[in-house]
Design a protein around this nucleic acid. Structure first.
Lengths: 106, 106
DNA sequence: CAGGATCCAATCAGATACTG
DNA sequence: CAGTATCTGATTGGATCCTG
């Protein structure tokens, strides 16, 4: 733990980070967007199997508002909206990998 | 992401890891136990300010069942029970640090 | 001291139906 | 195609009181 953090602020910081990732479908969405992939809403609907439209848009909106996902609207008929990760979103990869490594060590 | 994971299994793995950490007080508890600290139930009650007995014991039990925290009972009157991290629990530190680093980069 | 047992409020997730 | 709106059940968290 970097020295500028007390136990309390470190806990709060990690809590804040985790809050951005909590949500039934966020990680699945994220892993589908890692690697710079750009997917349409309907692509995600297919890729994230089992998700409802309501939950998908809700999770995407939160990820977007949190600066993790970017929403690209193409003004045309029929509508076309694409989603990809922001640079910051991409930067999550190593941290999640560290968690995965930890989990696999049990 | 290590090559033996598909997007789906990686997402599931990270979800599983996060599930172990989700809970209103778990991270605060963890950060108080990092560094090999050993605390009594009443110590934690004081350290984790705002927590109720019910929530504290609930979160501790889950952390214990998940193999992150170890519970040490001293059979004496009045009762004395201490909590510390398992080796695996200690190993969480770098992963949480990676998350903290990511969060601070925003 | 270290819990256990209840009850209640708030949040969350899913199903379903509708729309620009 | 890409959403919005509404309803309902499930899960979570907190307050309070009780006990070996």
């Amino acid at each position: 733990m970097p020295h500028q953090y007390t136990r309390e602020t470190a806990a709060e910081g990690v809590e804040a980070a985790l809050k951005l990732l909590e949500g039934r479908w966020k990680l699945v969405i994220l892993f589908h967007l890692f690697g710079g992939r750009v997917l349409r809403f309907s692509d995600l609907e297919r890729a994230v199997s089992g998700v409802s439209q309501k939950m998908l848009i809700q999770q995407l909106r939160q990820l977007e508002n949190d600066g993790i996902v970017r929403r690209i609207v193409h003004h045309q008929v029929p509508p076309k909206v694409e989603y990809c990760l922001t640079d910051w979103g991409q930067a999550l990869c190593p941290a999640l990998d560290a968690l995965l490594t930890w989990a696999s060590q049990r």
